[in-house]
Amino acid sequence: MTRARVVDFVFLVLLSAALGFAFNSQNPQGVELLPPSLPPSVQVVAAIPKDAVVVDARPRQYFERGSLPGAVNVPPQFFDLIYPMLLGNLDPEQPVVVFGRTWSRLYDVETARLLVERGHEAVSILEALPEARP
């Protein structure tokens, strides 16, 4: 069997990257390459604002392991499905505070973004939550 050369590995990786990015840009189910940015109207707060609705943005299996008291579970992946059921009747001026992120995904930023898109005016993100990393 012929020897493996460094150039073989470089070629394999570069070709994978080229094909992957090219295909992703054309794929209707493709992923967004840049991480989500926080809308300017969303504030980062250290404590839960008074009378705020608390939203846990992590996936269901984390929520079920324990969450903040009174929190509702609205992960960004299923936002369109869950939002009308849990938050559909909410006053747009009612404060909403979102939490929940891991090293690999900013669930809180994504859900906050979707809430702003639905017209909520007082959305904030809770920083430094000890239980945010299960």
Binding site: A17, G20, T102, R105
Partner: peptide, 22 residues
């Protein structure tokens, strides 16, 4: 990939796009 919590969030899309092609 996210569930494994091994890849930082900024690199997750890159891994998800390139790894299957590799």
């Amino acid at each position: 990939v996210v569930e494994y919590q091994l890849v930082p969030y900024a690199l997750v899309p890159v891994v998800a796009v390139v790894l299957p092609w590799l």
